[in-house]
Amino acid sequence: MWRDAVLVAGKDLRIELRSRVVLHQVLPFGVLVLLLFAFALGPEHGPLRQAAPGLFWLAVLFAGVLAVQRSVAVEGGEGTRDGLRLSGLDPAGIFLGKTVAVVVELLVLEAVLAAGVLLLFGAGVRSAGLLVLASLAGTAGMAAIGTLYGSLSAGLRVRETLLPLLALPVLAPVLVAGTRAWQLGLGTGPSGGSGPWVAMLLVFAAVYLALGVLVFGPLQESA
């Protein structure tokens, strides 16, 4: 399973390095979302600083759905889905590999968006470690859900519109917990312990990674 995961992640990341779809389309989209939020909230740094954690995670969520759609589209070419099934790769390995590739892409995107939040919204950092930990856990959960629901909608003609409808409601806990953790990490929200929020992100990621490993095979067969 791990060998197959490394093989699939390497393949997906190589495809991204060549096509640069995430870099040239998804990343600008995420930055655009941040800018539009900034325009909508006005030039005052106060409201922007307060809203920064939520806006960051909303931008990541929207851009993340696009990144997952791209990951699904890579296997949507004529013959490639059959090729993957014929390859003999372990479905759990395929799921983990595709999830890891999306995580890597989203972490790059989040680094740029985080810089945007700090510069555009004038937010300061209180706990960099908390921001990084919350981002890692939230991104892993988001990528696992996206890959899982992406495979569910892969064989359908309406997959582009169906994926956000399926994934976004399920991703709501990531949005809430990620925002709360970032509020604490940026010092913009009510004080309190970050433990429950980070734990929620970690549990969420672990549950969906485990679920994906278990059900990706049957989903691949039925898609």
């Binding site: 393949k11 070419g77 490639t80």
Partner: peptide
């Protein structure tokens, strides 16, 4: 349709 990735 052979199983090919166009970007590779």
């Amino acid at each position: 349709s052979p199983a090919l990735y166009d970007d590779l």
